[in-house]
Write a protein that binds this DNA or RNA. Sequence first.
DNA 1: TATGAATGAGCATTCATTCAT
DNA 2: GATGAATGAATGCTCATTCAT
Lengths: 212, 212, 212, 212
Amino acid sequence: MKSPGAAAPRPAVGARQPRAERTRQRIMEAGARLLSSEGYHQTSSKKIARAAGISVGSFYNHFRDKKELLLAVYREHVARVHQMIFDALQGGGLGAGLEGRRLVEAVVGQALRLHTLSPEFHRQMMALRHTDEDVGRVVAEEDERVVRLLMEMLSSSNSRRLRVDDLEAAARVVIIAVEEVVHGIKVSVPPPIGEERLIAALSDMVHRFLFR
Amino acid sequence: MKSPGAAAPRPAVGARQPRAERTRQRIMEAGARLLSSEGYHQTSSKKIARAAGISVGSFYNHFRDKKELLLAVYREHVARVHQMIFDALQGGGLGAGLEGRRLVEAVVGQALRLHTLSPEFHRQMMALRHTDEDVGRVVAEEDERVVRLLMEMLSSSNSRRLRVDDLEAAARVVIIAVEEVVHGIKVSVPPPIGEERLIAALSDMVHRFLFR
Amino acid sequence: MKSPGAAAPRPAVGARQPRAERTRQRIMEAGARLLSSEGYHQTSSKKIARAAGISVGSFYNHFRDKKELLLAVYREHVARVHQMIFDALQGGGLGAGLEGRRLVEAVVGQALRLHTLSPEFHRQMMALRHTDEDVGRVVAEEDERVVRLLMEMLSSSNSRRLRVDDLEAAARVVIIAVEEVVHGIKVSVPPPIGEERLIAALSDMVHRFLFR
Amino acid sequence: MKSPGAAAPRPAVGARQPRAERTRQRIMEAGARLLSSEGYHQTSSKKIARAAGISVGSFYNHFRDKKELLLAVYREHVARVHQMIFDALQGGGLGAGLEGRRLVEAVVGQALRLHTLSPEFHRQMMALRHTDEDVGRVVAEEDERVVRLLMEMLSSSNSRRLRVDDLEAAARVVIIAVEEVVHGIKVSVPPPIGEERLIAALSDMVHRFLFR
DNA sequence: TATGAATGAGCATTCATTCAT
DNA sequence: GATGAATGAATGCTCATTCAT
């Protein structure tokens, strides 16, 4: 298992013109904030520029258009999360092979953490993925990486306890279920029932599905 | 169990002014078509009016604004689907209590049918629910009805085979998992792996979760 | 020879909503004025709207875009000029066949009048015809009509005095020469030499070319 | 008759700072290419800089603004053409005095060659001359030189065969007619009738006008 | 001289909604 | 009820030009 590359669309961060890099960072921060709180369609390039303390023109010097900013923010966000997952798994004794309750808890825990990081932005991406082709494609790509990660983990589990044979289908279904249930929990305010009850049910479901 | 009411914001269809009602219907049909194919933000009131063969002004005589049309279309759509579920369960001998594989298959089957009806419109609603408060609320209300329906079905099952005690949490988790996996299947073109494999995995997961 | 149709892109003028027609006229008048004095690229839709005393939105209710306005103004302008030519030729005893000096003077005279009507607007069209495909096509179409008109006139002349055999080539060359020389005269301020001298030379050239 | 000076706004080409001069040349080449293919309004200074392999700032170090580049390119272009004319006339035995068919053919031939060199750029200048005061003035100046050249040629012809007395008016009218007919030929794609027919008619017209 | 980030006014166009007829 | 002309704020984006490094 390798460290997840960030797929950065720019050369090495921090290289080149330091001023430009700083501006780019400021735009991305302002963009992440606005996109999260206002939503894509309500966030105009003018607002972004003002929030970043620069001019509109400058914004367009750094990003081809609004969507490019959105995707850049998303990719950075995902890269951070992937790094967290990777680190966590390393710490958990990856070589021994996580399995049973421990693995399920790791997966659900990561999904929870992912939403804690920036639930609003995540919400926006989920909305846009159904509406915009480019966003849909990028989100799908990231999902693929997660699916493959889970498949690797499952196939290195103790096979006697594993209860599924179609590993890929199982991985996909589990990923979607976990992501969406967690998303649903974080998004519905107020939640109709306690978060712990839902998490417990979710964990049970996944555990009973995958393991004996 | 009662027949699911349509929550119609208007009196009985066909009653009262027949002309106004017919116009309203034409707007809703045109709206459903456009909202599905173009998306909410790309569907202007002018387009809707033209497609319905009426004037913009007339559109605003029948609906307060675009969102009201959207929600009206959604509600009608959902009412139709609920009726289908209700009919199906009646036919399946509801009194006897559906359980085990049969119940899981019924639930997954209904979700599949719901998307077959109008997958694009459903996709739009999923996008908007995260973005627009009103839409989110209405969608959540409809979800509540489905959750309660599943809970009723579970509690009338043979309790010896039932494996869960927190019925509500289980119902919520199952509903989200089923809806989203099915949605994911219908939405990703081309799907990364065969639909049947995903459906099989989904059914297994739900079955193992709920029943011994 | 038939009266030159106006190729109007709208139904009968004055029909339908009288208010809309009046607004359309005001836009066209304001547009003709601004396009002439400021030039196409310098005339913004905002300016046009302000000059017409309406809102930007209203402008776009009546014309798809700026170019559609330009072409509408041009077509109206050309239709007026063609009507003038037609009337003039009728008066000049068209049946008898205009020839020699009389014909040349008629042609040159019309060209002069055309520029008198609205030289600045004409100048703009000449600029745009080289730059914009649509404008180029429309101007070329109008030129074709004039060429065919001259050909008809030439072929109904006394053939003994006619000095050219390739009527079409002759007509095209004469039209271009007359239009451009006249245009050059009207456009260059101050003219390097007296207008009458240029007109005389032009008339001589055309006359000696066409007739014995 | 003297060799036509280029009216270059810079010292002798190649002198002084060789680096600066080379950069200037690269900008002019890139500019000529872009201005021809994209048009003045569509050619941004950024594009020019990129095409020339330099920075925007550098562009503005060498040219006050976009228009100065345009005019520089035009002047260079014209200088090249004038040199060609001059060389051609030298070769044709200028001292003997070109006249009749030979002179007409020389004039028309040069106009054709001028367009062959860079018809698109020429087209752009024709558009701009009507729109931009500076361009108009520069083009007019160049036209003056051509008019005077033709006048010289006419006045050194055998006066018995010459048919015009107002030499200047004749020269102006002929220049415009030749330039515009040739321009029309090169510009209209596809041409409505064969190029040779138009050229033949044009030559006949000019010949019959000027000579017995 | 060279660089390229920064500027900000400006532009064409859209669109939900109103309202006089 | 129906009509459709009118509204004008708002949007995404461009571009000639400047200037600190």
